[in-house]
């Protein structure tokens, strides 16, 4: 049996960490797009659409991410759609992310006062123009800290994808532990890597906060 050096462990974890980063990015971008769309239709205010979006948000906020992944991964094959762990993880995390971002952003949009809507309406702007020029720029500044904060949750949420066999950082950690019998070392390294991904995100959030305060008012 060959010996595993610490470098072997770290090197293999780093390879797997690429998938964690890629899955996080994909889920965050897709979730953000879906979330923005849901935010727009919700804010536009058709009562039935509002109810539907609220139900969507509550469904995904009120159930564990793990169950959502199981349902996507095991449920879709039942209706004849075979999905790979990658597709299932992406889809599950996108649904999860979009629900949370919609809710976070809704709060930010609502914090922009009624007077801003009325003033822009009085100037003849339609809904899209109001959103684009008046409401979203103001909501964006407020939204940055919680949004980047949530992106950290997405990164950590990708660990759940290990359960359906997607080889990312946590799954790789488990596999290496099974070969090395050194769980403390391996999971210690795994934790450090998650931290190295998440900590810069927090720093970035703080940087953006300062920047927006100075420039955009």
């Amino acid at each position: 049996m060959s010996e595993f050096t610490l470098w072997d462990i770290v090197y293999n974890l780093l390879l797997a960490a690429r998938w964690t980063v890629l899955l996080s990015l994909t889920a965050f971008v897709l979730g953000g797009l879906v979330g923005l769309l849901l935010l727009m239709v919700r804010t536009a205010g058709n009562p039935w659409v509002v109810r539907l979006v609220r139900a969507y948000v509550e469904l995904f906020q009120g159930t564990p991410l793990l169950m959502q992944l199981f349902i996507v991964f095991f449920g879709l094959p039942l209706i004849g759609l075979d999905v790979s762990p990658w597709v299932a993880a992406t889809l599950g995390l996108t649904l999860f992310t979009s629900a949370f971002l919609t809710e976070i952003w809704r709060g930010c949009v609502e914090s922009v006062g009624k007077g801003q809507w009325e003033a822009s309406a009085s100037l003849g702007m339609n809904f899209t123009q109001q959103m684009r020029y008046i409401v979203l720029p103001q909501a964006l500044r407020i939204a940055i800290p919680p949004t980047v904060g949530f992106s950290v949750q997405v990164v950590k949420g990708t660990a759940v994808a290990s359960i359906i066999g997607f080889v990312e950082l946590t799954k790789a950690g488990t596999m290496i532990t099974n070969a090395t019998y050194a769980p403390f070392t391996v999971y210690g390294c795994v934790a450090v890597m998650y931290f190295l991904i998440c900590y810069p995100l927090s720093l970035f959030a703080r940087h953006l906060e300062g920047k927006f305060r100075n420039v955009a008012r």
């Binding site: 006062g113 007077g115 801003q116 009325e118 003033a119 822009s120 020029y133 008046i134 720029p137 103001q138 500044r141 955009a216 008012r217």
Partner: peptide, 8 residues
Amino acid sequence: QQFNLFPH
């Protein structure tokens, strides 16, 4: 009454 200028 409250001006409602766009602060940004």
